[in-house]
């Protein structure tokens, strides 16, 4: 899929480190690598899922894209233009095209601004239209996220809204500028199931109607399957597996993805989900960041190779790549033979 499609956003070997503070007098602490040479191309119009546990670097990737942080190495391209060093007006123009939906709707709205003021804020910042046109845009954005009738909500304040309503306000705030690319950082992790379903459907509708490209960051494989065209599985800042969502989830090749599948609650997901029995190892001793990041817990890993060398992304077929020495194309994998 996607050969004919155009790349909209490209992360080119991005590295991001966080320096942890050491003790008083002691040598300063180890760097934590949040992203390690991550290479992702996102195609125009798709919903790309970034799946991983906490600490996998998925949120950092999103923050780098909206320029809340700067990468230590590597470049980010939007439509082929590098955006890592943008300043002033260019940076402001970029923010018109790329927006973000935050995780926690209880934190991402200014408690002192009404719904109307929150949503119209980006329009004022970018001096779009006069007061009247802005109002129309706000009403439209509110309707598109299902806050209707808009007049009922426009003058409310965040504390008067439910979590789902707040998140819809946050989405309207992100969408009112009509961006081309939106980073959605776990937009439903704080919401109830029925609310999440609403948010998912709003995002799908936005993509259908406005042709927005989404980067959907999540820890839930099921949500990724529902929303995404392609997904990338991350672990400790490394890309482990990337491919079409349906393909990756039906036929996961990387032992880590398989472990994630195994960890799903058994009863509900029992029918049809294959068990890979990738019993996680007790952590092995390793030094430094040289080998495969999953080596310490992997069942398939073999000592010298996996601990010394970082497996590169290996193409299994057109669209499905895996960073594991032992992944083979086809249904059968070394680890999942006896499912």
């Amino acid at each position: 899929m996607g050969n004919g499609k155009q790349t909209i956003l490209e992360l080119d070997r991005i590295v991001k480190r966080y320096r942890t503070k050491g003790f008083f007098f002691g040598a300063h602490g180890q760097d934590v690598i949040a992203l390690n040479e991550v290479f992702i191309k996102i195609l125009r119009g798709e919903i790309f899922g970034l799946v991983g546990e906490s600490g996998s670097g998925k949120t950092t990737a999103g923050r780098l894209i909206v320029r809340l942080e700067q990468p230590d190495q590597g470049k980010i391209y939007l439509d082929g233009r590098d955006i890592t060093g943008l300043k002033g007006k260019a940076s402001k123009d970029y923010s018109r095209r790329v927006q973000m939906i935050f995780q926690d709707p209880y934190q991402s709205l200014n408690p002192l601004l009404s719904v109307f003021d929150t949503i119209s804020e980006p329009l004022i910042i970018h001096k779009i239209g006069n007061a009247e046109a802005r109002e129309d845009s706000v009403w439209q954005a509110m309707k598109s996220v299902g806050l209707s009738p808009p007049h009922d909500f426009a003058h409310r304040y965040p504390h008067q809204l439910s979590g789902g309503q707040r998140q819809r306000v946050a989405i309207a705030h992100a969408m009112v500028l009509k961006p081309e690319f939106v980073v959605a950082d776990e937009p439903t992790s704080m919401l109830d199931a029925s609310m999440s379903a609403q948010i998912f459907n709003i995002l799908l509708e936005m993509r259908r109607r406005l042709k927005v490209t989404f980067l959907f960051i999540t820890h839930s494989l099921a949500a990724a399957r529902y929303l995404c065209d392609r997904i990338a599985v991350m672990y400790k800042g490394n890309l482990m597996e990337i491919g079409p969502a349906e393909e990756v989830l039906r036929n996961p090749k990387h032992p880590y993805t398989q472990a994630l599948m195994d960890a799903l609650p058994k009863f509900v997901h029992s029918g049809g989900v294959k068990r890979y029995e990738t019993l996680l190892q007790a952590e092995r001793e390793v030094s430094g960041y040289v080998g495969c990041p999953f080596f310490v817990r992997c069942k398939v890993a073999r000592a010298p190779k996996c601990s010394r060398e970082k497996p590169p992304l290996k193409k299994l077929d057109d669209s499905h790549s895996v960073a594991c020495f032992y992944a083979e194309p086809g249904i059968k994998t070394r680890s999942g033979g006896k499912a």
């Binding site: 809340l68 991402s108 200014n110």
Partner: peptide, 10 residues
């Protein structure tokens, strides 16, 4: 996050 949201909005 609401300050970061404002920053992202430009």
């Amino acid at each position: 996050p609401f300050i970061e949201a404002a920053r992202v909005a430009g």
